[in-house]
């Protein structure tokens, strides 16, 4: 079977050690443009580490990571330039508390893409409107609630006009009543055709929103397939055991 879809991220034989502990034990995977991929699995199984290797926040101990055919893990690669195209949203939001909501969004485009300030701010206001934060633009981001911070973090990444978005348990640190609002924003993003890779414990969301589900356990991809395949007919007993505990 030949696949004509464009590969946006590819990892080849990815290994990651923390000291002597081998967290990733040889992962091969391709992510295609426009795909929404959910990564599920038990804690400590390597999901987040895998995601963080995709933009080299974790340096692979062995193996290669490609973004649009260019090797990010190569020593001479211009990582900053590539990272502009790979947005990331963190569990702990990581908004810049000393900056206003607006500045959180505009600072990187102005600094690194030389976007004129007025243009960057107009763009930021547009983005803030899409997540209902336009009236918070002038406030310091540390004053926002968790859900607001995470929505800000998402549009901050979007302002760089990325080609792929990585989500690292984006709702795990939120109060329950905040989860829905954030998931709605992510879902809208997935529907707009953005390539998304989402590490999540929200199984309902993973099942509904993703094209493909990857189950990572013990540092390897133990199973992958469409949501129906993985959730309804898991082939690997470990997947089945995991799902029976969380569903």
């Amino acid at each position: 079977m030949t696949d004509k879809r464009e590969v946006i991220i590819e990892v080849v034989d990815l290994h990651k050690y923390f000291g002597k502990l081998e967290v990733l034990k040889g992962i091969n995977e391709k992510i295609y443009k426009g795909e929404v991929v959910s990564i599920i699995g038990p804690s400590g199984g390597g999901k987040s580490t895998f995601l963080r290797c995709l933009n080299l926040l974790e340096e692979p101990t062995k193996g290669k990571v490609f973004f649009k055919g260019e090797e990010l893990s190569a020593k001479d690669t211009n990582l900053d330039k590539h990272r502009q195209k790979i947005g990331m949203v963190f569990q702990q939001f990581n908004v810049f508390p000393h900056l206003t909501v607006l500045d959180n969004i505009t600072i990187t485009p102005i600094l690194e893409k030389k976007v004129p300030k007025a243009e960057a701010e107009a763009q930021a206001m547009k983005l803030l409107k899409t997540v209902g934060l336009e009236d918070k633009a002038k406030e310091y981001s540390r004053k926002l609630s968790g859900g607001q911070k995470q929505r800000l973090a998402i549009v901050r990444a979007m302002a760089m006009e990325p080609e792929v978005m990585l989500f690292d348990e984006p709702t795990s640190a939120l109060d329950p009543e905040m989860v829905k609002g954030v998931l709605e924003v992510i879902e809208r993003l997935t529907e707009s055709g953005m390539t998304c890779i989402i590490v999540t414990h929200e199984m309902g969301f993973a099942k509904k929103a993703s094209d493909r589900v990857i189950y990572i356990d013990g540092g390897v991809i133990a199973e992958e397939g469409t949501p129906e395949e993985v959730f309804d007919h898991p082939k690997n007993p470990r997947t089945a055991a995991f799902l029976s505990q969380v569903l």
């Binding site: 990272r83 502009q84 990187t108």
Partner: peptide, 14 residues
């Protein structure tokens, strides 16, 4: 917080 560096660098900040 280390997350501040990670967020900035993930956006492509030098």
């Amino acid at each position: 917080d280390k997350g501040q560096t990670e967020a900035a660098r993930s956006l492509g900040m030098t």
